[in-house]
Design a protein around this nucleic acid. Sequence first.
DNA 1: GTGCCTCGAGTTCC
DNA 2: CTCGAGGCAC
Length: 707
Amino acid sequence: MSDKPVDSLTKDEARAELGRLSDLLTKANTAYHGEDAPFISDADYDAAKRRNAAIETRFPDLKRDDSPTDQVGAAPSEAFSKVRHRVRMMSLANAFSEEDISDFDRQVRSFLGVAPDTPLAFTAEPKIDGLSLSLRYEKGKLIEAATRGDGAEGENVTANARTIDDIPVTLTGAPDVLEVRGEVYMSRADFATLNDRQQARGGKTFANPRNAAAGSLRQLDPRITADRPLKFFAYAWGEVSEPLAPTQSAAIERLRDLGFQTNPLTRRVTTPDEMMAHYHAIEAQRATLDYDIDGVVYKVDDLALQQRLGFRSTTPRWAIAHKFPAELAWTQLEAIDIQVGRTGALSPVARLAPVTVGGVVVSNATLHNEDYIAGRDSKGGEIRGGKDIRIGDWVQVYRAGDVIPKVADVDLAKRPEGTEPYAFPTHCPECGSKAIREEGDAVRRCTGGMICPAQAVEKLKHFVSRGAFDIEGLGARQIEMFYHDDQLPIREPADIFTLATRDAENLTKLRNRDGYGEKSAANLFAGIEERRQIPLNRVIFALGIRHVGESAANLLARHYGDWSSFETAMTGATPEGGSAWDELLSIDGIGAVMATSLVTTFQQENERASIDRLAAQLDIQPVEAPRTEGSPVAGKTVVFTGTLEKMTRAEAKARAEALGAKVAGSVSAKTDLLVAGPGAGSKAKKAADLGIEMVDEDGWLDLIKDL
DNA sequence: GTGCCTCGAGTTCC
DNA sequence: CTCGAGGCAC
């Protein structure tokens, strides 16, 4: 790229350079998105893009049809290809107190049926404050490295991972398939040196070692990553073709033997007291370590037990992270703003004088709700000793779980004179409708419904969000823009699917707008078109009905199967009762509150009409109950009774559900199978009366043994 | 009725 | 990530 100042370019030079820049940026984009090695750095990419824009501003008539300025979503941060994890990368549940730790020990024992006095081993290791990485080795060769991402899908950073010294490129004596997981981090000393160097060069400095490690790993140019002093500790694994060892501690040793760095402060402990002792020992060393840690992780040592314990929706039952107390900071509360959510909830947000806490500058913090500001909890009890929060107050903030800033305390001694308790608004700041608090509800909600623009926009954002329609090129920012657009508005979900038709009829085309070009407009329309065909569960979730999230939407979709059955059921049911209502409540996981929310939504004329307009635009795919391949209990209703000797209730239930069965608590005509252990009483008798199939615990295990 | 366990909703920062 | 609420087992 030429260095000649934009101001002094002749028109011919400008035309030629726009061509070169367009070519360069297009190639760079392709390289980022595809398999090719990226060939220019973040900084060069940005510089080229800025120069391109500057030239276009000076010579608007030279702007090309394929101008890189119009390529929406080509930001470098979206540049890595996606990798689906074959074994999910879970997060960990957190513990903050000794009590949480003994709860964890108790829960594990009760799930497994291990008596309190029987020793149960755990590993305890420091929790490194970096970013997790999964390394896939096949036949001893590193073939792929991926970040955690959302746990299911991460980013491919293989080229960058290869440059890290602690990550072996080949392994000897490893299983054919081995996914090693661990933490990429930067030592404190290296972080300080890097920041000095960056500063000297006029580059950007990082707020903390964690950000520096994250920023370095996600460089588009692996040569930059190679230049950054990243390190890696291995502490877990994903897919393996053969077991590494019978225990967690032995598996970690095996990883060390294979050539990985493992943390030297890892210990084996057997009681909550020992866990606490090791926690305090590590905490005492924290300041002298050369890397940041934010707690201690405990894992059940025996891998067979880990497998029995299994997973909750996002976390394993066999591990927990014991976090160090959060860092605190004092600052002044400048204002309280009210945000309106998609359900109309009025949420107060604290605007703070910027303050550094936990290595990050914080200027906003959540204030939860009315009661939290007033110093009351939801049951009318006191929090912060009953101290209320006022504008102008000095407040103590911390980052809960090291992420979300919260206001913890108020310094009454520094309270300015003449302050008043904060008067929570009784009307929606966005639409002026009355905001009311229902009996027993902690939040105040705007009653404006679809009239309220804030609610409408938030609902639309939810509609296009990840678990819902997830339309490429139509994110929160675009929704905001289209909602306020007079030429081509999106005011309700159905409008999204008429966008292309309306654009075709309009005089001002989307492709001629700021921020859009021929290509990006076409991409958006294609992205929308792609989602016209969509599974029922996503549609139900996308509607954004209160209390109906992803999980409830799945249950409903599975139960009703197709859109017309679902809609007929929702419009036919009334909270007063009747067969449609009873059927709704019979779904495991759907209670009266969810049912009422669903039914009242479909009863409101305007909501109903809006939903109908949407459905008319879509090709909604039916959802089949998950056919668990070859499972003899798929779709069956199973009841466990009596004493189970080889597994606990919770375990039996989790296992049965994983095989597609529904587990009920009591025997009824709908029960398909009763698993009766010794001491089975009335349930066994009732099952016999109803002629329901019965097996004992061994019979059950035999039934599912091949799965 | 009480006490788990999960899910849903709202939120921050880079 | 956290809090509150919903659902369900005991």
